[in-house]
């Protein structure tokens, strides 16, 4: 091992874990059938993976400007990623993108049709 400090080794390990979960998210984007299921994989794994990488950078660099920037970016990713997923899912449903054939229930569509009938 070259001269790495203890916290740098832990930082590298956390970065590697983050990259592995990012990989699962990408795999989910390719394998899952429709836009909603793909969003599930994309938001969860990519949020955790990216936040993990940034947290690893914080552990690696310690309490300095770079570390705090990484922490702030991680908090930002954690707060905004679910919101954008929610916006994409709602827009997709509004645009009439069909759910996959495996879908067993869509109460959202049923409720929307009901409220349109009442109008």
């Amino acid at each position: 091992m070259p001269d790495l400090a203890f916290n740098q080794i832990i930082g590298y390990v956390i970065i590697c874990i983050g990259i592995i979960f990012d990989l699962f998210g990408v795999l989910g984007l390719v394998r899952l059938p429709d836009v909603y299921n793909r969003l599930q994989a994309a938001t969860k794994s990519v949020t955790f993976g990216s936040a993990g990488i940034l947290f690893g950078v914080f552990v690696y660099s310690g309490f300095n400007a770079m570390g705090f920037k990484a922490i702030l970016a991680a908090i930002f990713v954690l707060l905004t990623s679910p919101v954008s997923a929610h916006a994409i899912a709602k827009a997709a449903h509004k645009a009439g993108i069909k759910l996959t054939d495996k879908t067993i229930i869509d109460l959202y569509r049923q409720d929307k049709e009901k409220s349109e009938e009442q109008k």
Partner: peptide
Amino acid sequence: ELIKANFHVAYIVIHPLLPIKPGIVK
């Protein structure tokens, strides 16, 4: 819950048969 969610996604994505049963509930 976030860590659990990630292992859940990893399990679904790696599984060869894609064990999903999706739907929108209230």
